[in-house]
Nucleic acid binder design. Structure first.
Lengths: 166, 166
DNA sequence: TAGAATGCCTACTTAATTAGTAGGAATAAA
DNA sequence: TTTATTCCTACTAATTAAGTAGGCATTCTA
């Protein structure tokens, strides 16, 4: 289990998707602009998220990315694992005889900690974050505005409006 | 909250100290050999741990490092914070107007997650790991051997014996 | 059917961080 | 006084994160 900026980018981008889910697909250009992450770097992260089925892409105008599953079925641990893919390799690999012939003790202890941490993050779902009342409120307001625009203009114009608002 | 190899090194080294606490100070040379981390890199990590009062150094022959406080009063979060010192700076810093004038939502959500994670790791103490029965057993066996040697030889010889065993 | 907006893919480059190397001064035990 | 250690600083190498560039594939809209 590793936790770096990369993981944070992935998690916050997924939160963005979750918040705007009812609006349809969110473009990476949107996320790139909102969160100040380079578009191409996001593409690289989303390639991994897609590979793990956490998101699905919709091509063409009006496209973007959607959650691959309901937010309640996506855990934070899964997101981080998808982009980090780096399995926690300890040096001794559990077979180095250290401390007088015993299997490396600290390795075991770290595994233990790593597991506890993973379990913790695996029990936190995207939904548990976006369901906070103040988030729902803001999100709803945004949706209302966006839907009003959507009613007045065809899809292309709505996207432009969202870009302008961001 | 960041979690990288650096943090793992620090945590496992601290676990080593905790396990061998009754034996007196543990040298960095020992840890370096047992865990395959370069001595000088360990010195750099321990400089930070010392700055935060998590360990105390004992100079001269027979010296090494000891826990700065009882293992039950040292949390995993503290150890990681000590070596990472990198405060999780998000790009928008909470003041970038994004999502149509609202304070960056995902920033808030990440903060929320970050806090939950910190609290989780702050409630895990070093002691909670080394008190597992199988660890106590191994640790006790090691201590027994070490103490037997210590009875037979003066401190210098004991250290060498520990090195040889490792 | 043409053009534009998107995802999707690959290769490369730059920046940041992690990890290691080197050398030496300070301290304390033997 | 010698030796084992912490303690300190500066530098370098390796690895990873992040960004850049360019182009192909798909699908919507006009």
């Amino acid at each position: 289990m590793k936790l770096s900026t990369k993981g944070r980018y992935a998690v916050t981008a997924m939160m963005d998707l979750a918040i705007h889910d009812p609006l349809g697909p969110v473009t990476l250009a949107d996320i790139s602009q909102c969160q100040g992450i380079s578009l191409s770097y996001l593409e690289q992260l989303f390639a991994k998220l897609r590979k793990d089925g956490l998101v699905e892409g919709v091509r063409g105008p009006g496209g973007g990315y959607r959650l691959g599953r309901p937010a309640s079925q996506i855990s934070i641990a899964e997101i981080i694992k998808a982009v980090d893919e780096n399995i926690d390799v300890t040096r001794c690999l559990g077979n180095k005889d250290c401390h007088g012939g015993e299997k490396c003790l600290t390795h075991q202890l770290w595994e233990d900690l790593s597991t506890r941490l993973y379990d913790f993050l695996d029990n936190l779902t995207l939904a548990s974050f976006i369901q906070r009342p103040e988030i729902r409120e803001v999100s709803h307001r945004q949706d209302t505005i966006a839907n009003r625009i959507a009613t007045m203009f065809p899809p292309r114009a709505m996207l432009s409006a969202r870009m302008a608002a961001a």
